[in-house]
Amino acid sequence: MTMTITALTLDLDDTLWPVMPTLLRAEAVLQDWLRAHAPATAAAFDVPTLQRLRGEVGRRHPALAHDLTALRLITLREALAAAGDDPALAEPAFTVFFAERQRVQWYGDVRPALERLAARFPLLALSNGNAELAATGLAPYFVGAVSARSCGVAKPAVRIFEAACAELRCTAGQVMHVGDDWTLDVVGARRAGLHTAWIRRPEAALHRGPASADADDAPAGLHLHLDDLLVLADALGA
């Protein structure tokens, strides 16, 4: 069945790097910037308070659930306004956060595995997050990217997987999606007709999915349950 796979889509956050340390560092850098440029906001909104506000913003703007950039900008504008600072500072504040958010630390298997996989298959990034290939150093391995923000809908919606297949000029049955989240990555991709590889890294603090990798309730197709991307490269003969 691996002979039918002609392209791969890969999730980014928590599949190629641990995302929580990246976000916590970016939040800390943002707080430093706010203390220097909007001290009233920094005093009123520490990281947990900003996170709670962002959750409230998300609940008030469900149509923007796919656009994390928009939600963060709205959150910053509201926090700045509430503290009496200039809401126009939201854009430069987000720029500082976003630059730090791109400074990711790849898992150790990622570079050698992507070198092997990219030599065999076209690779497309498929993410609900707002990491950018060029800024994270991944661009040389990928032919492109489809994000929830660019597509207008987030995983596990079938439409984002269909958009990825269209970008690759492949049918769903020719594509394998690789990701760490059972619902967003595995269930979503299989409902769209893609093959799947579920990456459950032993070092990850949280495995988002069932204890079993059973996917019998999904459409027919190849489903792999793997510890890292090098094992995937081996399994696909890359």
Rank of each mutant, 00 (worst) to 15 (best):
M1P: 07
A7W: 10
T9V: 06
D11Q: 13
T15I: 05
E27L: 07
A28R: 11
L34Y: 04
R35V: 13
R35G: 07
A40R: 15
D46P: 13
V47H: 10
R54T: 11
E56C: 02
G58Y: 12
A63L: 04
A65G: 11
L68Q: 01
L73I: 00
E78N: 02
A83W: 09
D86T: 02
L89I: 08
P92Q: 05
F98Y: 13
Q105F: 12
G108M: 10
R111G: 05
P112A: 08
A113D: 08
E115I: 06
F121D: 06
P122I: 02
L124G: 04
L126I: 02
S127W: 07
E132C: 07
L133P: 00
A135C: 07
T136S: 08
A139Y: 08
P140E: 09
V143K: 12
G144I: 09
G144D: 14
A148F: 14
C151P: 13
A154E: 15
P156D: 08
F161S: 10
Q174H: 15
H177K: 13
H177V: 14
G179R: 11
W182P: 13
A189I: 13
R190A: 05
H195Q: 00
W198V: 00
A205M: 09
L206H: 11
P219W: 03
A220L: 06
H225S: 02
D228T: 01
A233L: 03
A238F: 06
